[in-house]
Design a protein around this nucleic acid. Structure first.
Length: 274
DNA sequence: CATTACCTGCAA
DNA sequence: TTGCAGGTAATG
């Protein structure tokens, strides 16, 4: 469910609740395959440790412990994290919970069980970092870098935007929204985009992600922040999940096609291949 | 490269 | 009953 803006919102909402807290117990684990390493080793490495900082890389949440280890959490499609009273860990989709030293509990609720929690040493953390492309909201993401990434690529630009090795953190919603904003047809081969269109796309990616963060992300089904609050960006979608509705720019009905096995929404009039 | 698998729940 | 859902890894 969450893309970069949602994960960023979760990180910011968890920070005041978790930084400085110590982990006192692995309180629940009813879906063991979500955890690496396995529970006994995991518990031995985290119990008694303090959470020093919370960050994000791509769609991964990173909890730095006061040791060499980092807890890396991926919410995948339906996961969310909450800090609340320990009794709430009994809820049916809470698969993992850590008791904290303030009497509260960090819990991972995940209906579809795709989410993952990994404990990484510095080498593992470096590998995670290296597996992803530039962060689109950092200065390292430039039109020149994007041009480099798209050179000679024949795949549709929509598919390329979902590839985390090209640019980190974009998912299905914001790929659709960024292409609409840049007026680019989702089937345009990546390598066929001209320099000015790539510059436009670069700016569009940053704009849609920053706007979504300002609205605490999009809550369609499961997404909530670390306090259980919904985002409001879903109220501002221009094309996502709006097949048949008029394009906000030209009134032509939005179309739905499938690209890279994902629903793709676009305006057939104002989004072009060239 | 494109399928398929991983899971559950909801709406058509 | 079928298809679809904010993601990615593992297969052909």
């Amino acid at each position: 469910m969450p893309e970069l803006p949602e994960v960023e919102t979760v990180a910011r909402s968890l920070e005041p609740q978790l930084v400085g807290r110590a982990i006192v117990r692995l309180a629940k684990l009813d879906w063991p395959r979500m955890l690496t390493p396995p529970a006994p080793e995991f518990a031995a490495l985290v119990v008694g440790r303090r959470i020093e900082a919370i960050g994000r890389r791509a769609k991964w949440l990173l909890l730095s412990l006061d040791s060499a280890w980092t807890m890396a959490i991926h919410l995948r499609m339906s996961g969310h994290l909450l800090v609340t009273e320990p009794a709430a860990a009994a809820a049916p989709h809470v698969h993992f919970a850590l008791d904290l030293d303030d009497g509260r509990c960090l819990m991972f609720d995940d209906q579809r069980k795709f989410g993952r929690v990994h404990l990484l040493d510095p080498i593992g953390l470096a590998a995670l970092d290296a597996a992803h492309g530039p962060e689109p909201l950092m200065d390292t993401f430039t039109p020149a870098i994007l041009t480099e990434q798209l050179r000679d690529r024949r795949a549709p630009i929509k598919a390329l935007l979902l590839d985390q090795r090209l640019v980190a953190g974009i998912g299905n919603i914001y790929a659709n929204e960024a292409l609409w904003l840049a007026r680019i047809h989702p089937l345009t081969p990546g390598g066929a985009l001209t320099a000015d269109r790539i510059a436009c796309l670069h700016q569009a990616i940053r704009t849609v992600l920053m706007e979504a963060i300002a609205n605490q992300g999009s809550s369609l089904r499961n997404y909530r922040d670390g306090y259980g609050r919904r985002g409001t960006q879903q109220e501002h979608f221009n094309v996502y999940d709006r097949a048949g509705e008029p394009c906000p720019r030209c009134q032509m009905p939005i179309e739905r096609i499938v690209v890279a096995q994902r629903s793709t929404y676009f305006c057939p009039q104002c989004q072009t291949m060239g």
